[in-house]
Simulated assay, not measured.
Amino acid sequence: MRVTLISAAMSEAARASRFDDGSPLDDHGLRAAARAAGTLRPTGRVLVSPSPRCRQTAEVLGLPAPADEPALAGCAVGRWRGRTLDEVAAAEPEALARWLADPAAAPHGGEPLQALLDRVAAWLDGLPEEPASLIAVVEPDTVRAAVLHALGAPAAAFRRLDVRPLTATHLSGRAGRWNARCGEPL
């Protein structure tokens, strides 16, 4: 099985380092995705995280009829949605510290990081053997979760992985034995 995870192009929220707020691609993201259009040759299923910027990235890349895959959604951050890390640190320093230290914490009222990790791991482990390949356009935190699961890395490594916009992360293998090649620019 080959899984190619494409990180979404740049949006205004991503550029401002805000927690995702459902904003579409910005002009830079649109141009970058348009330059990368045609570089991917889907041979199997095409999936997309259910966010505006992921759907828009897939469309601009010219991927054929991607299907929404809820298991690949980014981490829901509740009331922190649309806020910068600095804003949250100023308003809720203890809550932010708890969230950064404990993968099971969800002081924002959204989804704990551990729930994202478990959801993405279950999706990877549940993939059928056919078709033998798929492409998914996803949020950076979904890529991080998939790489951690593929490598058997601890949740603490999540925030240590950088995922740049419009890069491909390739996973090959099957449940229980994945290999990873990360950060290939489109």
Rank of each mutant, 00 (worst) to 15 (best):
Phe158Ile: 06
Ser7Met: 02
Leu61Gln: 14
Val147Phe: 01
Leu61Cys: 13
Pro24Glu: 15
Leu100Gly: 03
Leu25Tyr: 06
Ser133Leu: 05
Glu130Val: 04
Val143Gln: 04
Leu30Trp: 05
Ala65Glu: 15
Val138Lys: 08
Glu111Thr: 06
Glu69Pro: 04
Ala122His: 07
Asp27Gln: 11
Leu113Thr: 11
Ala13Ser: 10
Gly176Thr: 12
Pro131His: 09
Trp80Pro: 01
Asp26Asn: 14
Gly126Ile: 00
Leu161Met: 15
Val77Gly: 09
Gly126Asn: 07
Thr43Ala: 10
Val48Ala: 14
Arg81Phe: 00
Pro50Ile: 11
Ala105Thr: 02
Gly74Thr: 04
Arg174Lys: 13
Ala9Phe: 08
Glu12Phe: 00
Ala157Glu: 14
Ala168Trp: 04
Arg18His: 03
Arg31Pro: 01
Pro50Glu: 14
Cys75Val: 12
Ala146Asn: 09
Trp99Leu: 02
Arg55Gly: 12
Asp20His: 07
Cys182Ala: 11
Arg79Gln: 04
Gln114Asn: 07
Ser23Arg: 11
Gly183Trp: 08
Trp178Asp: 13
Ala37Arg: 11
Glu69Ile: 09
Val147Glu: 11
Ile135Ser: 02
Ala14Met: 13
Glu87Tyr: 00
Asp102Leu: 02
Thr142Ile: 00
Ala115Gly: 10
Ala65Leu: 03
Asp20Trp: 08
Thr4Asp: 09
Glu69Leu: 00
Leu127Asp: 12
His170Arg: 13
Pro140Gln: 13
Asp86Ser: 07
Arg53Cys: 07
Ala65Asp: 15
Ala95Met: 01
Ser49His: 06
Gln56Lys: 12
Leu25Thr: 02
Asp20Leu: 02
Ala104Arg: 08
Glu94Gln: 14
Ala175Pro: 03
Gly74Asn: 13
Pro52Trp: 11
Ala16Asp: 15
Gly176Cys: 07
Val46Gln: 14
Ala175Val: 04
Val138Ile: 06
Thr57Cys: 05
His170Pro: 01
Glu12Trp: 03
Asp27Arg: 12
Ala180Ser: 10
Val77Lys: 05
Met10Lys: 08
Glu12Lys: 00
Ser51Phe: 14
Thr57Trp: 11
Phe19Trp: 12
Ile135Gly: 03
Ala36Asp: 09
Leu113Val: 05
